[in-house]
Amino acid sequence: MTTDDLPAGIGAPATRALHGAGYHRLEDLNGASRAALAALHGVGPKALRLLDEALAARGLTLAA
């Protein structure tokens, strides 16, 4: 199993939603659609902001 490195601050509902959609690492989210992530139950503006910040720190981004 891969190590989960999603930011803890996104909250449990967002983490569960991302895991359910197959995202376990920040690298998995690179290029993922922001709209698709926002449509996941539990992934709101705060989670997206924190994911943006964590991705940017690694030189990664979400797709528009």
Rank of each mutant, 00 (worst) to 15 (best):
D28Q: 01
P13K: 03
G9F: 01
M1L: 14
A54L: 06
V43M: 12
L40R: 08
A12V: 13
A12R: 15
L50F: 10
E53R: 10
H19N: 13
P13E: 06
A47W: 09
A63Y: 08
A14I: 04
G9D: 13
L18A: 09
T2I: 12
A54W: 02
R34N: 12
A64V: 14
A14L: 09
A63E: 14
L37K: 04
L62W: 09
L48A: 11
L37E: 13
L62S: 13
L40M: 12
A63T: 08
G59H: 01
L37I: 07
R34A: 13
T61R: 15
A47E: 12
A36Q: 14
L55R: 05
L51D: 06
R49A: 15
G22V: 03
T2V: 14
G22A: 07
L55T: 07
A35F: 06
T3V: 15
L55C: 05
A56E: 15
P13Y: 06
G11L: 07
A57R: 13
L37P: 09
G22Y: 02
G31H: 05
A47K: 07
A8E: 13
T15D: 03
A8H: 11
N30M: 01
P45C: 01
G20I: 14
L26H: 06
L26Q: 03
P45S: 14
